[in-house]
Design a protein around this nucleic acid. Sequence first.
RNA 1: GGCGCCAUGGCCAAGUGGUAAGGCAAAGGUCUGCAAAACCUUCACUCCCGAGUCCGAAUCUCGGUGGCGCCUCCA
Length: 468
Amino acid sequence: MKIYNTFTKTKEEFVPIEPGKVKIYVCGPTVYSFIHIGNARPIVVFDVLHRYLEYKGYEVTYATNFTDVDDKIIKRANEEGVEASVISERYIGEYLKDVEGLKTAKADCRPKVTEEIGGIIEMIKTLIEKGYAYEKNGSVYFSTTDFKPYGLLSGKKLKELEAGARVEIDEEKRNPSDFVLWKPAKPGEPKWASPWSEGRPGWHIECSVMSKKYLGDTIDIHAGGDDLIFPHHENEIAQSEAANGKKFVNYWMHNAMLTISGKKMGKSEGNFLILRDIIKDFSYDVIRFLILTVHYRSPMNFSRDLMEAAETSLTRIRTAYSNLKFRRDNAKTEELKEEEQNSLNELQKYITMFEESLDDDLNTANAVTAVFELVKFSNVSVLENSSKAQAQAFIDVFDKLADVLGIKLEETVEIGSEKIEALIAERQLARKNKDFAAADRIRNELSDMGITLNDTPEGVKWTYKEKK
RNA sequence: GGCGCCAUGGCCAAGUGGUAAGGCAAAGGUCUGCAAAACCUUCACUCCCGAGUCCGAAUCUCGGUGGCGCCUCCA
């Protein structure tokens, strides 16, 4: 499998540190509100990476954190007049609901910063001892000029950074590009005791500490949004490599931003759409599917029109799948017929196409295309007179590929199927008596419930789609 | 100001040297009581513009134009 490594700016053959095992760290959310749909992109993309590596037989350890102490959380807590932990716990809960909905709940661990303070203090101590960090008035800063490789990931040069007008001037820092590892608490802010002051950690140090604790000094893949390349990931490298004296990450993966009307969607930009709001009109599956139709390193412009198109596309896949199940359950022949053997041999072609796509830097867009090609092939191959064995073979391939992409092939029916069957039987009777007005009335009634009927020579087939 | 990325049909989107995947939308047809689904057919002599390299370029080089991102919290 080839992976584009942001550090080397090339696609590289993926070779894990330990054969058969992969350690992945993905930067998680700061929990001060609901996530927006842009946040869903890395969650979905790197979940597919996780699933695909497992599909290929790797044993994956996947860690993603919660930043549960931060200025924004404190601000929100002050606005509501509650403890910071009330805010963070609330949005961790909401985040997990979204993660569940997106079918991305496979992470092995989700550490929280507030539960890792001890480890953070230890790493800061080490950095001071090794001469990479210094204390000033209760704050501790990382000295960027003392870490020679600083800037290699982002391609920034310290000189340029200093020349930039946007670097905050801070009298305590030796260099404008130095960043905070520990800062003293202001009155009323959450705080922990440390050798330097009662305070809390800076943002960047947490990921270095948690990655080390849960995955080790050197990990295979570290991933996140491309807006984290600088300064967050650059700083993580500096901290981890300075403290551990070892290479931090072998492959850096970054997803491009989700845009809206061509502009980056961001909480600071104020042009974001909350995932929960989108889910009122579309299912989680649709946003997940839409995200997969674009390569993860290309910017993706979000719109409702795209969601609608994605929903229709997804329905095409689901319809093909449900047709297969219908054919299987109504098949007149059990055993595979001789003439069907060719189609089964050809199935492998689609699996290969699917795998080659994902092997090429996780090209989910082409993997989805492979699924569409499979849909087409299935529609022309598995017919009324097909055997149960043939239909099942196709179903197995659908299941296999959909599982990697995390696409749900069937919607859960929320209505009692006895009721549906009764109405269908009633309509069939009406049709038999040529009372088409009554038949159509029942069909409309079912349609209002989200049931679409399909009259076939083998009987009536129905599919369910949740009404929004 | 510095660094980097992108520009493919009505919409979305793969493709990074060998002659334009796929999805949505649209048009016609088959099937059907009508539908739905499915199938068949049609839908970019062309990939922002100009020049160059090459037997050959959407793909490489140079120059434009337009758009975006990072340099500050951000997925």
